[in-house]
Design a binder for these strands. Sequence first.
DNA 1: GTGTGCCCTG
DNA 2: CAGGGCACAC
Length: 459
Amino acid sequence: MRSELLDARAQDSVGRSDNEMCELDPGQFIDRARALIREQEMAENKPKREGNNKERDHGPNSLQPEGKHLAETLKQELNSAMSQVVDTVVKVFAAKPSRQVAQVFPPLQIPQARFAVNGENHNFHTANQRLQCFGDVIIPNPLDTFGNVQMPSSTDQTEALPLVVRKNSSDQPASGPPAGGHHQPLHQSPLSATAGFTTSTFRHPFPLPLMAYPFQSPLGAPSGSFSGKDRASPESLDLTRETTSLRTKMSSHHLSHHPCSPAHPPSTAEGLSLSLIKSECGDLQDMSEISPYSGSAMQEGLSPNHLKKAKLMFFYTRYPSSNMLKTYFSDVKFNRCITSQLIKWFSNFREFYYIQMEKYARQAINDGVTSTEELSITRDCELYRALNMHYNKANDFEVPERFLEVAQITLREFFNAIIAGKDVDPSWKKAIYKVICKLDSEVPEIFKSPNCLQELLHE
DNA sequence: GTGTGCCCTG
DNA sequence: CAGGGCACAC
């Protein structure tokens, strides 16, 4: 009966050898363990020397008849000794660095789960009291032990970060089972968790909050949530760019001023710089909603198609309000950053638009045009082609007539202003802007559809 | 103080 | 097209 357990344990340890904590730092750990064994034997005066002597006498390769029996006995002895040793070692280690982590992550159920994940095989299953003990003191160890171990590349930051985001979000209502369900074993019994954490599922060896520490920067999380999608769609490319820019902002402005040390829980970091962060680019809640586990079909960023759509909308509105944008980009999950980006797009559109207008107006003046009556915009004029090339490059959208009218009015405004010599005033264009902003027209309802591009361009 | 838009630059 | 600086309006 015992031997079956031992055999199963042996096989198990082979099959999961990559994941065992005991292999994290074999040399140091074993050496220390042996030393402690001797210490304990000396202190307790137990007859364990016998087992050790046998080990030395016969060695692991013994083929003598009683070798098998000796091996079993030895294993049992080692189990017992190792259990004591581990307890002792853990106590020794726990005395050192536990304070910070234990404070930040009080009891939880994580220690047990973690124990099961990394624990020393099944021999601990029969030692509940040890498990409890381990659970109490093992918390700080992940930082020590895992900090030294090379995790499989598949467990790199890119996957862990999205989950970090969810954890950091205080009001995250556990919206549905996460895609991978990686953290589910944490809620299972140690035994089932152990069984579940085979090599293929051994992806988040840390309790998730612990994972947060190295990357707990307010933007570290969002970036993870973006990259966590783990696919190379155009959206993700956009997101990457956006995220990069965000991170640049944040790191250059705030993170450098408030380096997030592991001693600071996220809430503290938030408290320190939340106002700054908020004023900079959205709030953290917004960002956390971008988690790939939100289960929403909403776009988590602006795609090239959104840009194309925005350009087509420019034919109708030059000065869209942020509310209008939210209405017409209903498939986008809005936060401050998205809103700002969209507004910036239209700002850029206007910039190009007005530059073209001024250029064309001056050109007309240079060409000897004296009356605005001579200025008209048709679909084959140079100005129109330039605008169409910019906002409707594929020329697969029929530019509304109203846009031609507005463009013509704009052109004549510029023409008149220049003729009148108003361009000596540095802010002479503002009067024109004031006129043009009143000429926005209704954007067709079809633009509210997320699939409007297909619908529009197929007409 | 915050939001917005313009301007300039890369 | 994005970033940053700036001015202006609430």
